[in-house]
Amino acid sequence: MKAKVSNRQLGETRLGWMLSAPAVIILLAVTGYPILQAVYFSFFNYRMTDPDNRFVNWGQNYIVILTDPLWWQTVGVTLLLTVVTVAVELVLGFALALVMLNALRAVRPWVRTAILIPYGIITVVAAFSWKYAFDLGTGFVGTWLAMPEFDWFGDFWSSFLVICAAEIWKTTPFISLLLLSGLAQIPGDMLEAATVDGATWWQRMAKVIIPNMKAAIMVAVLFRTLDAFRVFDSVFVMTAGAQSTATVSFLTYNQSISQLQLGMGSALSVLLFLSVALICFIFIRIFKVDLAQARGE
């Protein structure tokens, strides 16, 4: 039987709706409208500087994209980049979170600040720093590794490695921060009980810490996966998509901003949007990520 809702509860619900309505309306206006317009444009052959030759081509843009090897290649590169960076960041981020949690009280603020510095640097600036460090003309990394004549941006794998390294360096602090909040939520008495019962460090980690952090880990992985899938800056700055390093976002940028092909570009944005939505769906429905739980609610 459904509990009777009191007048006060009803009033509060109404007040809640009224308070959140302005934000919801603004959010719909600034996100819903562009999304709908992109969907609309995606059914046109529309070049911004050739408006006279604009015509509706229905689903042709989607057919061209989905049958073009370049699309699948960029999807492949983006997925590979996502998997590699998120996996490495998770391991490194966890280690850094442990360091931040267990550092001596006196040095803790310094450790946390030092770890967070890369995250505070603007992505484009970070990308340029990495580019200049590895560039054959200005770079020093080649000399350090005794490979002064090696062009890091000369083929796919070496370019990919540098892009991954830049991404990992830049966003590991974000993951470690999310994991730190998960670590901090594990009750101290639970760990003490495990220690008293004679559990080793590894057993405490595998049986107590990680299972209790599942929500925090999944949220960190979800956020980073969404971020990594939309990677743009590093690729744009370091290779401009050369050596087959173009990602889905870069391809979309190229079509809409450089080529001014609003129709094709919009179709690509719609597909990028659907991919991101699919990732969210997989995480929330299949891996059962509980966003509320991660916030400690």
């Binding site: 054959l136 003309g137 004549e149 050369a242 050596q243």
Partner: peptide, 15 residues
């Protein structure tokens, strides 16, 4: 040179 595929005007000048 080894940098051929990334050689722009400035890099070519330095070389």
């Amino acid at each position: 040179g080894p940098q051929l595929s990334n050689l722009d005007e400035n890099a070519a000048m330095l070389e």
